[in-house]
């Protein structure tokens, strides 16, 4: 199985865009080697601003740059790029509809050894709550490329969540994405997995594992969590009658909550939210942590079977 880094892909895509478009600038908060904005900084230093460990200042400076016609990409880890500067994103960026792109890496628990302080599991909740903000979580490197190109082109605030770990490749290299549309990767009959980020691949694997137990699972990748593609989700809900959302994020206010509120007015369908259960992360290796939190394909499949049996009995 081929795995590719979303961060590398971000850095390369951003550099390519900046080569073509002189309006593109990048900002970082002392993590450019990790977020890969360093690729741009090495080739085009005059359009790179390392703000030091000062995320609030970074968001404000990015906002100011956008007011003079530049297209700023501000990057750091998910925890610092959202919670640390929430009010700056709220007021300077979102109320003002500033053309600022916040692309964070190290979302979720697969940050690994750094532990709870660095494992951001509330960022999707924070960012989807903000009016005017659009929220993308790509499922592999090729989708990441498409997302970065899209947000550079579209006016207004965007939040993109990437991860530290490499992701298995799901899509063809040259796929033409319709990012606003939830993507049905596998058709199914009696259960729908709705996932985002790394969990999309894990759900595809879980769906395979379910075959023997009489569950033909549909798998949908929601890359655009806000705006969310209600139509695709509702029609799948009506078709299979059972939904399992899976995310590397708190179950309190993440993808699951967005899906639930998207369907509840039109479809009465039992929904199980799989994610981090209202708690913080902990140190460990990424693979160990996925198992520990029940986000590996086996655990997902097991929870889906239990849920299916409980509801269908």
């Amino acid at each position: 199985m081929e795995k590719l880094s979303l961060r590398d892909c971000y850095g390369e895509t951003l550099l390519n865009l900046a080569r073509e478009d002189k309006r593109i600038v990048a900002l970082d908060a002392d993590l450019s080697g990790s977020t890969k904005t360093s690729l741009l900084s090495k080739e085009i230093p005059e359009r790179f601003f390392d703000m030091g460990v000062a995320e609030a200042d970074m968001i404000g400076t990015a906002t100011g740059l956008s007011l003079t016609g530049f297209i700023p990409f501000a990057s750091t880890f998910a925890v610092f790029g959202t919670g640390r500067c929430y009010d700056q994103i709220r007021q300077s960026v979102c109320i003002s509809k500033a053309n600022v792109k916040i692309v964070v890496t190290h979302g979720g628990i697969t940050v690994g050894e750094d532990g709870a302080t660095h494992q951001m599991v509330e960022d999707i909740a924070l960012m989807t709550s903000l009016p005017n903000m659009r929220v993308f979580v790509p499922a592999d490197a090729y989708q990441t490329k498409s997302v970065i190109e899209y947000v550079a082109k579209k006016e207004g605030p965007f939040f993109v969540r990437l991860s530290r770990e490499k992701f298995p490749v799901i899509y063809d290299k040259d796929k033409n994405f319709n990012l606003l549309k939830a993507d049905i990767l596998k058709e199914g009959k009696n259960l729908t997995f709705i996932a985002t980020g790394l969990m999309v691949f894990n759900c595809l694997e879980a769906a395979k594992a379910l075959k023997g137990s009489g569950i033909d699972a549909e798998v949908i990748n929601v890359c655009s969590i806000k705006p969310i593609d209600k139509e695709t989700i509702i029609s799948s809900a009506k078709k299979t009658g059972l939904i399992v959302t899976v995310e590397e994020h708190s179950v309190m206010n993440g993808l699951g909550a967005q899906v639930l509120s998207a369907i509840c007015e039109e479809a009465f369908v039992p929904l199980l939210k799989i994610g981090i259960e209202d708690r913080f992360g902990t140190s460990g290796k990424p693979d160990e942590l996925l198992k520990y939190f029940g986000l590996d394909p086996e655990s997902i499949a097991k929870k889906a079977i239990e849920f299916y049996k409980r509801i269908k009995k």
Binding site: G60, T61, G64, L67, Q91
Partner: peptide
């Protein structure tokens, strides 16, 4: 030019504008 009210945010924005003007 920009929304303000929650205090402390204006100078970072002013810096960004000034840097943008220099770039241009």
């Amino acid at each position: 030019e920009i929304t303000t009210g929650s205090l402390g945010q204006g100078l970072s924005i002013a810096n960004g504008i000034a840097l943008g003007l220099k770039l241009k």
